[in-house]
Design a protein around this nucleic acid. Structure first.
Lengths: 121, 121
DNA sequence: ACAAGTGTATTAAATGTCTTAATACACTAA
DNA sequence: TTAGTGTATTAAGACATTTAATACACTTGT
Protein backbone atom coordinates (compact mmCIF):
# COMPACT_ATOMS: atom_id res chain seq x y z
CA UNK A 1 0.00 0.00 0.00
CA UNK A 2 2.71 2.45 0.99
CA UNK A 3 6.48 2.43 0.75
CA UNK A 4 8.59 4.77 2.84
CA UNK A 5 11.96 6.21 1.93
CA UNK A 6 14.11 5.82 5.00
CA UNK A 7 16.93 7.77 3.41
CA UNK A 8 14.67 10.74 2.80
CA UNK A 9 15.32 13.76 4.95
CA UNK A 10 11.63 14.24 5.66
CA UNK A 11 10.17 12.81 8.89
CA UNK A 12 8.56 9.39 8.55
CA UNK A 13 5.28 10.51 10.09
CA UNK A 14 4.95 13.25 7.46
CA UNK A 15 5.71 10.81 4.67
CA UNK A 16 3.03 8.45 5.92
CA UNK A 17 0.47 11.23 6.23
CA UNK A 18 1.19 12.61 2.78
CA UNK A 19 1.05 9.26 1.04
CA UNK A 20 -2.27 8.39 2.60
CA UNK A 21 -3.56 11.86 1.83
CA UNK A 22 -2.68 11.35 -1.82
CA UNK A 23 -4.47 8.01 -1.91
CA UNK A 24 -7.55 9.68 -0.48
CA UNK A 25 -7.37 12.65 -2.84
CA UNK A 26 -7.13 10.33 -5.84
CA UNK A 27 -10.01 8.20 -4.66
CA UNK A 28 -7.90 5.09 -4.15
CA UNK A 29 -9.27 5.17 -0.63
CA UNK A 30 -13.00 5.87 -0.75
CA UNK A 31 -14.95 7.82 1.86
CA UNK A 32 -16.12 5.51 4.64
CA UNK A 33 -13.34 3.03 3.99
CA UNK A 34 -11.40 1.85 7.01
CA UNK A 35 -7.67 2.44 7.24
CA UNK A 36 -5.24 -0.10 8.70
CA UNK A 37 -4.97 0.03 12.48
CA UNK A 38 -2.15 2.01 14.00
CA UNK A 39 -0.35 -1.15 15.08
CA UNK A 40 -0.89 -3.07 11.86
CA UNK A 41 0.30 -0.27 9.61
CA UNK A 42 3.28 0.23 11.90
CA UNK A 43 4.28 -3.39 11.37
CA UNK A 44 3.71 -3.15 7.61
CA UNK A 45 5.86 -0.04 7.28
CA UNK A 46 8.46 -1.18 9.81
CA UNK A 47 8.05 1.87 11.98
CA UNK A 48 6.92 2.55 15.53
CA UNK A 49 3.18 2.74 16.29
CA UNK A 50 3.76 6.26 17.61
CA UNK A 51 4.91 7.34 14.18
CA UNK A 52 1.75 6.08 12.50
CA UNK A 53 -0.30 7.58 15.29
CA UNK A 54 1.16 11.01 14.55
CA UNK A 55 0.42 10.60 10.88
CA UNK A 56 -3.20 9.69 11.59
CA UNK A 57 -3.56 12.56 14.04
CA UNK A 58 -2.36 14.97 11.37
CA UNK A 59 -4.78 13.50 8.84
CA UNK A 60 -7.68 13.88 11.23
CA UNK A 61 -6.60 17.42 12.05
CA UNK A 62 -6.86 18.25 8.35
CA UNK A 63 -10.20 16.51 7.95
CA UNK A 64 -9.09 13.64 5.73
CA UNK A 65 -10.03 10.93 8.19
CA UNK A 66 -12.31 10.46 11.17
CA UNK A 67 -11.09 8.61 14.23
CA UNK A 68 -13.35 6.52 16.41
CA UNK A 69 -11.69 5.28 19.57
CA UNK A 70 -11.87 1.53 19.91
CA UNK A 71 -12.96 1.09 16.28
CA UNK A 72 -10.48 2.61 13.88
CA UNK A 73 -9.82 5.36 11.36
CA UNK A 74 -12.15 6.02 8.44
CA UNK A 75 -11.84 8.14 5.32
CA UNK A 76 -13.97 11.28 5.60
CA UNK A 77 -16.44 12.57 3.03
CA UNK A 78 -14.97 14.67 0.27
CA UNK A 79 -16.75 17.78 1.54
CA UNK A 80 -14.65 17.63 4.66
CA UNK A 81 -11.29 18.02 2.98
CA UNK A 82 -11.75 19.14 -0.61
CA UNK A 83 -11.74 22.87 0.12
CA UNK A 84 -8.73 22.78 2.39
CA UNK A 85 -6.91 20.56 -0.12
CA UNK A 86 -7.64 23.11 -2.84
CA UNK A 87 -6.27 25.88 -0.70
CA UNK A 88 -3.20 23.87 0.17
CA UNK A 89 -2.18 22.87 -3.33
CA UNK A 90 -2.91 26.30 -4.78
CA UNK A 91 -0.83 27.87 -2.05
CA UNK A 92 1.96 25.44 -2.83
CA UNK A 93 1.64 26.27 -6.51
CA UNK A 94 2.03 29.96 -5.74
CA UNK A 95 5.20 29.34 -3.77
CA UNK A 96 6.65 27.24 -6.55
CA UNK A 97 5.79 29.80 -9.20
CA UNK A 98 7.47 32.46 -7.11
CA UNK A 99 10.64 30.41 -7.16
CA UNK A 100 10.29 29.78 -10.87
CA UNK A 101 9.89 33.48 -11.47
CA UNK A 102 12.81 34.30 -9.21
CA UNK A 103 14.92 31.94 -11.29
CA UNK A 104 14.29 34.13 -14.29
CA UNK A 105 11.85 31.90 -16.16
CA UNK A 106 9.51 33.88 -18.41
CA UNK A 107 5.79 33.75 -17.78
CA UNK A 108 5.02 32.09 -21.09
CA UNK A 109 7.43 29.27 -20.39
CA UNK A 110 5.86 28.63 -17.00
CA UNK A 111 2.38 28.65 -18.54
CA UNK A 112 3.52 26.24 -21.20
CA UNK A 113 4.82 23.89 -18.52
CA UNK A 114 1.45 23.90 -16.76
CA UNK A 115 -0.39 23.33 -20.01
CA UNK A 116 1.81 20.38 -20.89
CA UNK A 117 1.20 18.61 -17.60
CA UNK A 118 -2.54 19.07 -18.03
CA UNK A 119 -2.41 17.83 -21.61
CA UNK A 120 -1.30 14.41 -20.41
CA UNK A 121 -4.70 13.00 -19.48
CA UNK B 1 20.74 42.19 1.87
CA UNK B 2 19.31 39.03 3.38
CA UNK B 3 16.95 38.32 6.27
CA UNK B 4 16.73 34.88 7.81
CA UNK B 5 13.72 33.30 9.43
CA UNK B 6 14.98 31.77 12.65
CA UNK B 7 11.61 30.18 13.35
CA UNK B 8 11.64 28.38 10.02
CA UNK B 9 12.17 24.65 10.15
CA UNK B 10 14.68 24.74 7.33
CA UNK B 11 18.39 24.83 8.21
CA UNK B 12 19.95 28.30 8.25
CA UNK B 13 22.72 27.33 5.84
CA UNK B 14 20.13 26.25 3.27
CA UNK B 15 18.20 29.46 3.70
CA UNK B 16 21.34 31.51 3.16
CA UNK B 17 22.29 29.52 0.08
CA UNK B 18 18.84 29.78 -1.45
CA UNK B 19 18.47 33.49 -0.86
CA UNK B 20 21.84 34.25 -2.40
CA UNK B 21 21.01 31.92 -5.26
CA UNK B 22 17.85 33.92 -5.91
CA UNK B 23 19.75 37.21 -5.87
CA UNK B 24 22.17 35.79 -8.42
CA UNK B 25 19.39 34.38 -10.59
CA UNK B 26 17.60 37.73 -10.64
CA UNK B 27 20.76 39.61 -11.50
CA UNK B 28 20.82 41.54 -8.25
CA UNK B 29 24.28 40.07 -7.89
CA UNK B 30 26.08 40.32 -11.21
CA UNK B 31 28.64 37.83 -12.50
CA UNK B 32 32.10 38.70 -11.26
CA UNK B 33 30.72 40.57 -8.28
CA UNK B 34 32.26 39.75 -4.94
CA UNK B 35 30.14 38.35 -2.15
CA UNK B 36 30.54 39.38 1.50
CA UNK B 37 33.28 37.47 3.29
CA UNK B 38 32.31 34.46 5.34
CA UNK B 39 32.93 36.29 8.57
CA UNK B 40 31.25 39.54 7.58
CA UNK B 41 28.09 37.91 6.35
CA UNK B 42 28.02 35.79 9.50
CA UNK B 43 28.00 38.94 11.61
CA UNK B 44 25.36 40.59 9.40
CA UNK B 45 23.05 37.60 9.65
CA UNK B 46 23.82 36.88 13.29
CA UNK B 47 24.92 33.33 12.59
CA UNK B 48 28.12 31.35 12.97
CA UNK B 49 30.79 31.63 10.26
CA UNK B 50 30.54 27.87 9.79
CA UNK B 51 26.93 28.28 8.74
CA UNK B 52 27.81 30.80 6.03
CA UNK B 53 30.73 28.65 4.99
CA UNK B 54 28.40 25.73 4.36
CA UNK B 55 26.08 27.92 2.34
CA UNK B 56 28.96 29.15 0.19
CA UNK B 57 30.28 25.62 -0.27
CA UNK B 58 26.87 24.52 -1.54
CA UNK B 59 26.68 27.46 -3.90
CA UNK B 60 30.09 26.66 -5.34
CA UNK B 61 29.12 23.00 -5.67
CA UNK B 62 26.18 24.06 -7.83
CA UNK B 63 28.23 26.46 -9.91
CA UNK B 64 26.69 29.72 -8.73
CA UNK B 65 29.88 31.11 -7.25
CA UNK B 66 33.61 30.61 -7.56
CA UNK B 67 35.77 30.55 -4.49
CA UNK B 68 39.33 31.84 -4.42
CA UNK B 69 41.15 31.14 -1.20
CA UNK B 70 42.54 34.23 0.39
CA UNK B 71 40.48 36.51 -1.85
CA UNK B 72 36.81 35.77 -1.58
CA UNK B 73 33.74 34.39 -3.32
CA UNK B 74 32.64 35.69 -6.70
CA UNK B 75 29.45 35.25 -8.70
CA UNK B 76 29.99 32.88 -11.63
CA UNK B 77 29.05 33.53 -15.24
CA UNK B 78 25.46 32.84 -16.11
CA UNK B 79 26.46 29.99 -18.42
CA UNK B 80 27.69 28.04 -15.40
CA UNK B 81 24.35 27.80 -13.66
CA UNK B 82 21.49 28.99 -15.87
CA UNK B 83 20.72 25.67 -17.54
CA UNK B 84 20.78 23.61 -14.37
CA UNK B 85 18.69 26.21 -12.55
CA UNK B 86 16.08 26.24 -15.31
CA UNK B 87 15.89 22.47 -15.30
CA UNK B 88 15.61 22.40 -11.55
CA UNK B 89 12.78 24.88 -11.15
CA UNK B 90 10.81 23.66 -14.17
CA UNK B 91 11.05 20.10 -12.90
CA UNK B 92 9.81 21.26 -9.53
CA UNK B 93 6.98 23.13 -11.22
CA UNK B 94 5.91 20.00 -13.07
CA UNK B 95 5.79 17.97 -9.87
CA UNK B 96 3.72 20.63 -8.17
CA UNK B 97 1.29 20.90 -11.06
CA UNK B 98 0.85 17.13 -10.99
CA UNK B 99 -0.21 17.37 -7.36
CA UNK B 100 -2.48 20.29 -8.14
CA UNK B 101 -4.10 18.30 -10.93
CA UNK B 102 -4.41 15.19 -8.74
CA UNK B 103 -6.23 17.32 -6.18
CA UNK B 104 -8.89 18.05 -8.78
CA UNK B 105 -8.04 21.66 -9.62
CA UNK B 106 -9.11 22.68 -13.13
CA UNK B 107 -6.50 23.77 -15.64
CA UNK B 108 -7.87 27.28 -15.91
CA UNK B 109 -7.65 27.81 -12.19
CA UNK B 110 -4.04 26.67 -12.15
CA UNK B 111 -3.22 28.95 -15.07
CA UNK B 112 -4.90 31.84 -13.33
CA UNK B 113 -2.77 31.20 -10.26
CA UNK B 114 0.42 31.36 -12.31
CA UNK B 115 -0.72 34.52 -14.06
CA UNK B 116 -1.49 36.22 -10.77
CA UNK B 117 1.94 35.53 -9.33
CA UNK B 118 3.57 36.93 -12.45
CA UNK B 119 1.34 40.01 -12.40
CA UNK B 120 2.88 41.10 -9.09
CA UNK B 121 6.01 42.80 -10.41
C1' DA C 1 -18.06 -11.19 31.66
C1' DC C 2 -14.28 -11.92 28.93
C1' DA C 3 -10.75 -11.51 25.41
C1' DA C 4 -8.93 -9.35 21.52
C1' DG C 5 -8.34 -5.39 18.99
C1' DT C 6 -8.82 -0.52 18.76
C1' DG C 7 -7.15 4.60 19.66
C1' DT C 8 -4.67 7.36 23.02
C1' DA C 9 -1.23 8.98 26.30
C1' DT C 10 3.10 9.09 28.81
C1' DT C 11 7.92 8.68 29.87
C1' DA C 12 12.56 7.57 28.80
C1' DA C 13 16.28 6.73 25.83
C1' DA C 14 18.72 6.80 21.44
C1' DT C 15 19.79 8.97 17.27
C1' DG C 16 20.93 12.38 13.90
C1' DT C 17 21.16 17.10 12.22
C1' DC C 18 22.00 21.76 12.92
C1' DT C 19 24.34 25.31 15.13
C1' DT C 20 27.60 27.46 17.91
C1' DA C 21 32.20 28.08 19.75
C1' DA C 22 37.03 28.15 19.79
C1' DT C 23 40.89 27.36 17.34
C1' DA C 24 44.32 26.77 13.80
C1' DC C 25 46.39 27.00 9.17
C1' DA C 26 47.42 28.56 4.35
C1' DC C 27 46.71 32.00 1.16
C1' DT C 28 46.30 37.03 -0.74
C1' DA C 29 46.75 41.91 -0.83
C1' DA C 30 48.26 46.39 0.74
C1' DT D 1 54.48 42.42 8.07
C1' DT D 2 49.77 42.80 8.90
C1' DA D 3 45.05 42.33 8.07
C1' DG D 4 41.71 39.92 5.76
C1' DT D 5 40.48 35.86 3.21
C1' DG D 6 38.85 30.70 2.73
C1' DT D 7 39.28 26.26 4.98
C1' DA D 8 39.39 22.66 8.47
C1' DT D 9 38.81 20.50 12.94
C1' DT D 10 36.94 19.37 17.40
C1' DA D 11 33.78 19.81 21.10
C1' DA D 12 29.54 21.00 23.00
C1' DG D 13 24.70 22.08 23.10
C1' DA D 14 20.00 22.38 21.21
C1' DC D 15 16.48 20.35 18.89
C1' DA D 16 13.41 17.15 16.37
C1' DT D 17 12.56 12.50 15.24
C1' DT D 18 12.09 7.91 16.36
C1' DT D 19 11.95 3.98 19.13
C1' DA D 20 10.65 1.42 23.21
C1' DA D 21 7.90 0.05 26.94
C1' DT D 22 3.91 0.73 29.23
C1' DA D 23 -0.72 1.84 30.59
C1' DC D 24 -5.64 3.00 30.01
C1' DA D 25 -10.35 3.46 27.98
C1' DC D 26 -13.21 2.04 24.42
C1' DT D 27 -15.58 -1.36 21.00
C1' DT D 28 -16.62 -5.75 19.18
C1' DG D 29 -17.61 -10.60 19.20
C1' DT D 30 -17.91 -14.58 21.88
Amino acid sequence: MIVLDFRDKRPLNEQVAEKIMNLIAQGALAPGERLPSVRNLAVDLSVNPNTVQRAYAALEEKGYITTITGRGNYVSEESNWKDSLYGEVLSELKETVKRVMAAGVEREEAMKCVREVYERD
